[in-house]
């Protein structure tokens, strides 16, 4: 972002999801973004075949968080050989739910006038971190105590050179909210909350020690299978 603007959520660079050789010349690369609460799949469609492509449509298989296209894939003009177009597809989270392995896996079908093609991709679950995920302090303390220790997962985030305030503000851009900060023995402890689109709350403690580039992240969540994906988001957000 420009000077004085919040950095916003991290958007990974596009990667190739469907190589042309597996889709009769159609190449699809893409990424996911959350902007002001709107989830989008951002796609580049390239025609590497010898003939024009038309009649595009997209469908998702059921998935862990109910991600579904909120409208049709808008490819309004035929795609000529060697042409690339950029398409943004808004997504909802009210589609059918089925737990996927890995949890953030999405199976996609794309059709055009030539055939139907299938691919899988993975989204950062920060896509699902909602804007009102700042938990009341009192509720945080009670919930932290209430979630059993067995549901706590710990991770080390290496090579991070931000101080705790910079980390906190960067994380907030991705809807990871700092509820409290305490300094004990030269360590800053950030207590943070996250709420997913399906109502699951995640509580974390981020430990930042002056002069030590390794952070310790503790994640407490009743649905403990989301913890490692939350950790992946911290890595992505803090290092980009």
């Amino acid at each position: 972002g420009s000077v004085g603007m919040p950095a916003g959520a991290y958007v990974p660079p596009k990667s190739v999801w469907l190589p042309a050789m597996k889709a009769k010349g159609l190449e699809i690369s893409g990424t996911f973004a959350r902007r002001s609460g709107v989830i989008q799949m951002e796609l580049s469609l390239t025609n590497k075949a010898m003939s024009v492509m038309t009649d595009f449509a997209i469908q998702f298989n059921r998935n862990s968080f109910g991600l579904a296209p909120a409208g049709p894939l808008q490819v309004l003009t035929p795609l000529s050989p060697n042409q690339t177009i950029e398409v943004s597809l808004p997504l909802s989270t009210s589609g059918p739910v089925m737990k996927m392995e890995p949890l953030n896996n999405l199976q996609v079908a794309v059709k055009n006038n030539i055939d139907v093609f299938y691919f899988s991709c993975q989204y950062p679950i920060s896509l699902l971190f909602v804007e009102d995920g700042k938990m009341e302090r009192q509720v945080f303390l009670a919930t932290w105590k209430d979630i059993p220790n067995d549901n706590e997962a710990q991770f080390v985030i290496k090579d991070c050179h931000l101080n705790s305030d910079a980390a906190s503000s960067k994380l907030q851009g991705s809807n990871i909210f700092t509820i409290a900060k305490r300094t004990v023995d030269n360590q800053d402890m950030l207590y943070q909350s996250i709420k997913l689109t399906n109502g699951i709350w995640v509580l974390t403690e981020l430990r930042v020690q002056g002069g030590n580039p390794s952070y310790t992240l503790s994640v407490k969540c009743r649905a403990s299978e989301v913890s490692q994906f939350v950790y992946q988001c911290y890595e992505l957000v803090l290092k980009n």
């Binding site: 009192q138 303390l141 305490r182 402890m189 403690e205 430990r207």
Partner: peptide, 20 residues
């Protein structure tokens, strides 16, 4: 008073986590 209590509770939590 509630706010003071919460401030104190977070301090206790942080201390308990660094010196369990």
């Amino acid at each position: 008073e509630l706010e003071d209590g919460l401030d104190e509770a977070f301090s206790r939590l942080a201390k308990s986590r660094t010196n369990p």
